[in-house]
Design a protein around this nucleic acid. Structure first.
Length: 200
DNA sequence: CTAGGGATACGT
DNA sequence: ACGTATCCCTAG
């Protein structure tokens, strides 16, 4: 009894971290209310967010015997070039949120020429990331390219010239009809795969 | 509502 | 069985 136990997905963790980056640590309720993350974090409660964040920071110190090293409190990653992204967002009074600089490599991006046998338009990872970004931004009127870029940069570590790549992909996606471009803003085309969510 | 502590389900 | 990730309950 008690709990079916549902493990967190990467998307949820990413949303949580993005939410913390925006609102700060401890603003669980605020994060949950935020439309950007409420789509992804619909099941977890504010308490769940708190709990998740708690064990996320614990880098397992159950060493066999002596582990005096507080190794983990923060693993500062020497970000090669990426650092202060435009944090033009609400940076109200006390910014308790420390650096949650934990970039995820954006993985392989432009290698979708994988024509295994037929002509199956395999979606590249970037496509999905873009779709996710727009979906999560959830702007009723659509999202500007810069907004999308900013959102993605907050969660991933864009490669060399991400801007150029994004522009190309955006154009490609609107040409394929997966995105609708209106007034220099992009929105998800109707009936797009919405593979997200946990079982209620 | 948020922080902390305790209990329990799941993976190895 | 042990260690770890979630869930549940209580206090501030």
């Amino acid at each position: 009894m008690g709990a079916p136990k549902q493990r967190w997905t990467s998307e949820e963790e990413a949303a949580l971290r993005a939410g913390i980056a925006r609102h700060g640590v401890g603003k669980w309720r605020t994060i949950l209310k935020d439309p950007e993350f409420s789509s992804t974090l619909c099941y977890p409660s504010n308490v769940d967010l708190k709990d998740k964040w708690r064990n996320m920071n614990v880098i397992v110190s159950t060493s066999s015997s002596r582990d005096k090293a507080k190794t983990a409190v923060k693993r500062a990653r020497t970000t090669p070039k990426n650092n202060e992204h435009t944090m033009a967002i609400s940076r109200v009074t006390s910014d308790i949120d420390d650096e949650i600089v934990d970039e995820k490599p954006i993985a392989s991006l432009p290698s979708e020429a994988k024509n295994t046998s037929n002509s199956k338009k395999s979606h590249s990872r970037l496509d999905n990331i873009i779709m996710e970004a727009i979906k999560n931004l959830n702007e009723p009127t659509g999202s500007h390219r810069t907004t999308i870029a900013n959102y993605i940069e907050e969660q991933y570590w864009p490669p060399s010239d991400f801007d150029h790549l994004l522009s190309a992909k955006l154009k490609d996606l609107s040409t394929s009809g997966k995105l609708i471009k209106v007034n220099r803003k992009y929105r998800i085309a109707p009936s797009s795969p919405n593979s997200e969510g946990r079982s209620p």
